[in-house]
C-alpha cells in the first residue's frame, strides 16, 4: 500500500487545486479552476486500481455494517454469476467483481469503487425475472465503471472531504486515519446520493450491458413501474427516492434509447426458473 500512496496524493493534490480555488474565493480565475476540475476528473480515471479498490472496500464494509449480506451461499453465488456475466460486457471486465444481496427489506441497490455491487433483499423481491436483476446490477456496474463515487468524493463538498484532509494528502501520504476519513465520507455519500446525471447515465449503460449479456433490456420498464407503485415516502423506499430521480423521469429519459436500439429485433431473454428459486428463498427469510 505504501508504495502506491504517492499516486493517491496526486489525485488529492488535484482535488485541493480544484476545491481550494473555490474556497479561497478564486473567482478571478474561473478558467483555471475549470481546468483543474478537468484534471481532477482525469485523475479519478487514473487512480491506480489498488487505491480505488481500497477506498471501495472500506465503503462496502460500512454498507455491510448497516445491513449484512443474506446468510444464504446459494443466493450469493447466484447473484455473483449473473452479475459477473453482465460485468464482463462492461468497459472494465477484469475487475474483481463482487456482488451480494443485503439482508434488509429496504428497496435499494448500491455500488462501491473497485467492483462492489449490492442489491437489497427488498428490491430483489420486487423483481419479476433475471432480466430485471441484470439491469439493476448493470446500473450499479455502470457507477463503478464510470467511477461516479470517486468523482463525487473529490468534488462534492457535502461528503466532507475537507481541504484540510486534501492538504494533508499533499504534504505527506494518506495515513490510515485519513483513509478512514475517506471511508466515512464514502458512507455519507450513500445518504446524499450521486448526481442526477450520473443516475441517468447508469440507467442508459445498465440497459445496454444487460442487452449485451443476452437479456431483454425492456425489463427495466417493469422495474420502474414497480418502483413507481411504492409510495416514495414509505420507509423502505425513502432512501432510494431521496437519492434517485423519480421512476417517471428515468423512464422518460430512457425511452428514446430503448426504442432506437432495442425497439426491433430479438427481444432478449428473461429467465425465470432459477430467479424464482432465489426469490422464494429470500421471501422465506422475510417472514
Amino acid at each position: 500500500m505504501r508504495g502506491r500512496l504517492p499516486l493517491l496524493t496526486v489525485f488529492f493534490a488535484l482535488a485541493l487545486a480544484a476545491t481550494g480555488g473555490a474556497l479561497a474565493g478564486g473567482l478571478d480565475d474561473i478558467q483555471a479552476l475549470t481546468g483543474d476540475m478537468d484534471r481532477l476528473r482525469q485523475a479519478s480515471g487514473q487512480m491506480p486500481l489498488a487505491e480505488e479498490r481500497e477506498i471501495g472496500r472500506g465503503m462496502a464494509e460500512r454498507l455491510m455494517g448497516a445491513s449484512p449480506p443474506v446468510h444464504d451461499a446459494r443466493v450469493q453465488r447466484y447473484v455473483n454469476r449473473v452479475g459477473l456475466w453482465v460485468a464482463e460486457g462492461s468497459q472494465r471486465p477484469h475487475l474483481a467483481w463482487t456482488f451480494g444481496v443485503l439482508d434488509t427489506p429496504a428497496v435499494n441497490a448500491f455500488a462501491a469503487p473497485g467492483g462492489y455491487v449490492f442489491i437489497t433483499r427488498g428490491l430483489f423481491l420486487l423483481l419479476n425475472d433475471e432480466g430485471e436483476l441484470a439491469v439493476v446490477l448493470g446500473h450499479e456496474i455502470a457507477h463503478v465503471t464510470a467511477r461516479h463515487h470517486l468523482q463525487a468524493l473529490a468534488q462534492d463538498a457535502r461528503v466532507g472531504i475537507t481541504a484540510d484532509l486534501v492538504g494533508n494528502a499533499i504534504h505527506g501520504h494518506l495515513d490510515h486515519g485519513q483513509l478512514e476519513q475517506m471511508w466515512r465520507a464514502g458512507a455519507r455519500l450513500y445518504a446524499i446520493g450521486l448526481k442526477r446525471r450520473d443516475e441517468f447515465d447508469a440507467d442508459r449503460i445498465g440497459v445496454a450491458l444487460a442487452a449485451r449479456a443476452g437479456y431483454d433490456p425492456w425489463t427495466f420498464m417493469d422495474t420502474l413501474t414497480t418502483l413507481e407503485a411504492v409510495h416514495p415516502d414509505a420507509p423502505a423506499m425513502a432512501l432510494q427516492s431521496k437519492t434517485h430521480p423519480s421512476p417517471e423521469e428515468r423512464r422518460a429519459r430512457l425511452l428514446g434509447q430503448l426504442d432506437q436500439d432495442f425497439g426491433k429485433g430479438e427481444p432478449g431473454a428473461r429467465p425465470e426458473t432459477r430467479f424464482d428459486e432465489m426469490r422464494d428463498r429470500l421471501s422465506a427469510r422475510g417472514r
Binding site: 427489506p105 435499494n108 427488498g122 414509505a234
Partner: peptide, 16 residues
C-alpha cells in the same frame, strides 16, 4: 411498504 427501511444515517454511522 410499511416496513422500516435502511436510511442514510444507518450507513453513515455503521461500523465496518
Amino acid at each position: 411498504f410499511g416496513v422500516r427501511g435502511l436510511d442514510g444515517g444507518d450507513i453513515a454511522s455503521a461500523a465496518p
